[in-house]
Write a protein that binds this DNA or RNA. Structure first.
Lengths: 253, 253
DNA sequence: ATTAACTCTATGCACTGCAAGAAGTAAAAA
DNA sequence: TTTTTACTTCTTGCAGTGCATAGAGTTAAT
């Protein structure tokens, strides 16, 4: 990367789409490349999965290959580019069959699949998302969702809002699910301690916030609450779309 | 802060609720405090508003008072606590009258008010959110929303999902609105360049992603798209709740 | 008066992304 | 074949971070 690093949008896009027809910018002269972009990303993803996005540093990744931090830069350009590549690499869409029974079922399948991806890589929640062009894997998800909405004749005027709500809800519920998951006993104790401290310092908390304090009594299996919340949200949304004048069955094609 | 810093949950909670009946832990001995917690938070918020959350450092804040970084710690405990205090401080809820015409209107007023807060402090999007006890200001929002749902007799089973969806959607749309807003000409050019690069490198992009590429043609006033998206989402959600067996009018009380 | 608790300052450590230069290697040109 | 040149990788170093620690000064309780 002898050229200016951040302006090289072209190289970054080529790397993003490297498995969909483009070639990574790996020119001719000089010593052979000893590392592989996919391996680098996998390493970064492994670190992020285990220790969080903050633990991902060029030094940490390079250390796994017994190299120093600067080795990474020829492969990714900048750290921000590295994170973007990791984001798309971790977002690979699995394959599944669209349930044909109802719009709600189809949306549910999509949402749960995305939820699982976010659960497997909780740091994805910390990354920005926009429906403006990201990498190919992320685009796959959007395209799939729009296909579902189209098949069930959801009116085009309702589609952008639906897309926004679904993505936002999946990301939010997956984020809290991941937070629950990584709550070991010590994190749990800390949380409980904090709740108790609030109760002790604000004795009339339940009078001040009657509705929200009544909400919280932990459910029997509170670990599953986020997934259930997502299911309920999808159901609500599908009901709204169904009553908004959609057809009764899917259009095939 | 002579004691262990992170374990002092009590002091943190007292600071969070300092304007609601608790006293900050600024006890007896030692020299008078030269700084004020609210001023510190305001400074941090100003920095975050102007330069983003990443620019908020103890050194940067302290520099505005011509002090060194360690001065901040007696006031906040840790950096994470500082950010949590900033988050709640910036989330103060304005006052408005609940529109009584329809559930949709009431939800819309709530959502737009929160949207405005997030637009004023875009870095709030980067902070985690959970309905488990945060600070008092954030709790105000949740309580208000639940009050609305209760007044319109939204069935309790639908409330958690509704809350999750609304918060997630507001946060998501406000995030993209803020991103649009900070897109000056250079950011705009970069984005356009990237889109063009993708088009050039993947010539059949529109065939591969027929639905999602058709979505993008920029709207006339694309700056307003996120707000409009939020409005549409609220409308959808209200329709779903309305058809889910809610009463026709608000219950006062 | 003594002592303990507190705030502020200075220093230093381990960490970050990355600019810049040095050193080495392979392909192209002579 | 030899030289040149383009390209890699590696080392060093800089400016930045949160914060542990220790010291000096200040105040209130004892």
């Amino acid at each position: 990367m002898a050229v200016e690093p951040n302006r090289d949008v072209n190289a970054h896009v080529r790397r993003l789409w490297r498995h969909r027809g483009t070639t990574v910018p790996t020119p001719r002269r000089g010593p052979r490349q000893q590392l592989d972009l996919d391996e680098i990303l996998q390493t970064g993803i492994a670190i992020a999965d285990a220790e969080g996005l903050a633990a991902v540093s060029t030094r940490a990744i390079a250390a796994r290959f017994d190299k120093s931090s600067m080795v990474i830069y020829p492969y990714v350009g900048t750290k921000e580019n590295l994170l973007a590549l990791m984001q798309d690499h971790a977002s690979a869409m699995p394959s599944w069959d669209d349930p044909g029974a109802s719009l709600a079922d189809a949306l549910h399948a999509w949402a749960e699949a995305l939820f699982d991806v976010y659960l497997a890589h909780p740091w994805l929640t910390d990354r920005p998302w926009s429906q403006a062009s990201q990498g190919p894997n992320e685009q796959d998800w959007l395209e799939r969702l729009l296909r579902i909405l189209d098949a069930w004749a959801v009116p085009p005027s309702a589609r952008p809002s639906t897309v926004t709500m679904l993505y936002a809800t999946v990301r939010a519920t997956a984020g809290t699910a991941a937070a629950y998951q990584r709550m070991n006993q010590q994190g749990m104790a800390e949380w409980r301690e904090r709740a108790e401290a609030t109760m002790k310092l604000i004795p009339d908390l339940c009078q001040r916030y009657p509705m929200s304090t009544r909400l919280e009594p932990v459910t029997p299996r509170w670990q599953d609450a986020p997934r259930a919340g997502l299911a309920g949200a999808v159901e609500l949304l599908a009901a709204a779309l169904g009553s908004a004048g959609a057809a009764a069955g899917p259009r095939l094609g």
